[in-house]
Amino acid sequence: MKAFSFERAIDAAQAAKRAFEMPGSKFIAGGTNLLDLMKHEIEVPPHLIDVTHIGLDEITATDDGGLRIGALVSNTALGADERIRRDYPVLSRALFAGASSQLRNKASTGGNLLQRTRCPYFFDPKMPCNKREPGAGCAALDEGADTRQLGVIGTSDHCIATHPSDMAVALRVLDAEVETIDPEGRTRRLTLDEFYLLPDDTPEVENALSPGEIITAVVLPAPVGGTQRYFKVRDRASYAFALVSVALIEQENGEGRVALGGVAPRPWRRDDADAELANGATAVMAKLLDGARPTPDNAYKLVLAERTLAALLAKE
């Protein structure tokens, strides 16, 4: 790990200002992903700003019947919150499908959104990676590369990594928004499709945050009801990243919403695919995975996604 200087922020606005003043600095909250990356020297921040003492650790009701989740609420606290369990069960399920108890106790809501890909080539500094070093190339696109876990849609000729979060997939299906504050003290809200950027020719830019801008909360709209499910397919029964995951909200009239994890650089959802729900999994996936460009090693994800959704739709 490279040496770094360290400070403790007093509030979100000050944290944003300090981050802007110190180029290359990183916010640290739970640290479960950042410290791992720093040990590998994939992240080498010269300065860390501790944001664990800036409040933002509560879940509060919003005026329109939704919930505002402070960015520092832990994954355990969020998944276990009675209101989340009752009104947004897909989010609880997604959270408890991820990581281990130890990690969920530490990991924050904001940090979960910002966690980096687990692409094996991103994690291996000896291999070229356009995320780590723009312009270096992408080892995952080389002949014979191990791409089994990598993305099938939304990827580019420069990067085929996936976003690893389970939580974000549930937030996408719930139409959650990310609330931020920038170094000038301006706040804004972004949908997840606005927040997460597709790789195109700049895979190193993963989100819309400007320099210093910090996530303060995730805002859930009023509950939408329905039957909510999160199903994660992985190589072992627990404590592994998704090969494919499906977040589903089904209403009694057959309408609903579907988002996928494990297949794309961001949680993957399309309105025109949601509209096909009453017509079954094949119809949904024809839209949702339209334009997919899998590798021979990960084309199985297209079949797996459809069958996982079909299995969920067949459940009573």
Binding site: G31, T32, L35, L48, S101, Q102, L103, K106
Partner: peptide, 8 residues
């Protein structure tokens, strides 16, 4: 409970 290796 937390992983002591992943916190400063």
């Amino acid at each position: 409970r937390v992983n002591a290796c992943l916190t400063l």
